[in-house]
Amino acid sequence: MTTTVKARILSVLLLLTALGIWELVTPSVSNAENMTEYELLMGGAADVARVPPPSAIFVKAFEELSNPIYDNGPNDKGIGIQIGYSLYRVLTGYFLAALIALPLGFLIGMSPLAYKALDPFIQVLRPISPLAWMPLALFIIQDSEASAIFVIFICSIWPMLINTAFGVAGVREDWVNVARTHELSSMRTAFTVILPAAAPTILTGMRISIGIAWLVIVAAEMLVGGTGIGYYVWNEWNNLDLTSVIFSILVIGVVGMLLDAMFAQVQSAVQYQE
């Protein structure tokens, strides 16, 4: 048996154990008579508000996933639609950021002067929590949808910018010399030598960025409301539907994992060994 197979089996066992314990420690709804008065006051009155057992979440997941795309007004949309909204915002903000970060990072990486001149701005802007921009964005843009996209834009720009600059600046001089001795134009050098040489580092930045963007979208949607998976979580919390809350947490995790896996795929495609 290979290590991979063993690890997989162990993963499944761990999951089953955890789910089993969770299922066992979760008091079932039927024994409400045994509750203390305090418990009755806090949670017993509304069955839905207690932490649900895994079985309840499976049932919920099956319901939601068998009909992911429906729209019954603002407070009742299928999980597919909510994820779709979130992905749309993340990808729009992310690609706008890439559109600026990649060429700018390239320039910064190529020119030590530009690097020195822009570095203080990057250092100050980078540590700002993206959500801190939200009020300013709402005020200036006057549109909650665009503001959410702006927040994604601002949070995903830094890792891409910094990694691109770093990757481009670190391209081995011998490879640039190969381009020079072959009389390549600066454009051809940029695309045929520097870009592939820096691609693994650039992709690392893009991968970090998409991860951060997915983290931030949930918080941003809780703030702006209306649609999206973040809003969905918050809305279900307001409904005290913890089953849905836990289900959507899992969905957020899985979508994030898939996004990351996609970038990992691209990253391994541009990876090279010296």
Binding site: V178, P196, A197, A199, V270, Y272, E274
Partner: peptide, 10 residues
């Protein structure tokens, strides 16, 4: 060159 004449991704 002494080393690194080839582009390693090609």
């Amino acid at each position: 060159f002494q080393n690194y004449s080839l582009l390693p991704w090609m």
